[in-house]
């Protein structure tokens, strides 16, 4: 499982004439198979645009987005996006949502795969519930389970825990990490939470304001599970915040 990502000299603009906004300018980077990269940066810096290009929802104006050396022309089950606002279909039960994501899998296996993934995210017993009957944290777990059911090589996460309260956020995040040690797809996580990035990622990309560029790449080598209070992570956090134009004293 997993795939490598290569972004080469990508440009992306929106709008036309005076209203034209440059979202990405000459962006390049690579991500290795099974690597977990977190992308942090100021709001509206084009982080989400980047994920949409990677997942194939948008095409670059110039440059190339390559997955395993081949250009991404359209969205596919190989790379699943977990969107900020959530996209679990509210008109279907948890089971129906997972079942639809399994489209194409032979019938006899489906039941077992669904049961396995529902268990994985700790939602056994909630299969027949509708999304509006679940809490925000549970819904986000369904989102994760549905993404993993498709056995993606890549997982794109756009502030997936942004709508959750701090405690739920931490528990869903820990759960995600636990699950990902099993399948190990290549992961790209967009977040504005520096601690979250340091908690989960192998590398953290720090972006500049629009048009976005990678200003700093931070390797996070601390072993997992990570303690955010460890001197190494505190140091990295300070470095990233400085790069973002804040000093640690501003936030702590």
């Amino acid at each position: 499982m997993g795939a490598d990502v290569s972004v080469k000299g990508v440009w992306k603009r929106f709008g036309a004439g005076d209203g034209e906004v440059s979202a990405l300018e000459d962006m390049s980077f690579t991500v290795g198979v099974g690597e977990f990269v977190a992308i942090v940066g100021p709001s509206g810096c084009g982080k989400s645009t980047l994920l949409k290009l990677l997942a194939g929802f948008e095409q670059p104006d110039r440059g190339e987005v390559l997955i395993d050396g081949r250009p991404v022309l359209a969205p596919s089950r190989r790379g699943i996006m977990i969107a900020q606002r959530g996209s679990v279909f509210p008109w279907m039960t948890v089971r129906q949502n997972l079942d639809l994501a399994l489209d194409g899998t032979p019938d006899p296996d489906r039941h077992q795969i669904i049961a396995q993934h529902v268990n994985l995210v700790g939602l056994a017993g909630f299969e027949e519930r509708y999304p509006h009957e679940l809490s925000g944290g549970m819904l986000q777990r369904v989102e994760v389970a549905r993404a993993l059911v498709a056995k993606p090589d890549l997982l794109y996460m756009d502030e997936p825990f942004g709508a959750l309260d701090a405690l739920t956020r931490l528990s869903v995040r820990n759960e995600l990490l636990r699950i990902l040690t099993r399948d190990r797809p290549t992961c790209l996580l967009v977040t504005h939470d520096v601690e979250e990035a340091l908690h989960v990622a192998d590398r953290v990309f720090v972006m500049t304001p629009r048009p976005a560029r990678v200003a700093l790449v931070v390797d996070v080598t601390a072993p997992r599970p990570r303690r955010m209070s460890s001197p190494e992570l505190v140091g990295l956090k300070e470095r990233i915040l400085t790069e973002l134009g804040l000093s640690a004293a501003d936030v702590t």
């Binding site: 997942a55 929802f57 359209a74 969205p75 596919s76 089950r77 790379g79 699943i80 996006m81 969107a83 606002r85 959530g86 996209s87 679990v88 279909f89 008109w91 279907m92 639809l100 994501a101 489209d103 194409g104 498709a150």
Partner: peptide, 24 residues
């Protein structure tokens, strides 16, 4: 978001109508 998700999971054609567009 729902249309994107459908596209992402490869739901197209008639199934897109019956499972996503009409229920939505």
């Amino acid at each position: 978001e729902y249309l994107w998700a459908a596209q992402n999971f490869g739901i197209t054609g008639f199934k897109l109508f019956t499972h996503v567009i009409i229920p939505g």
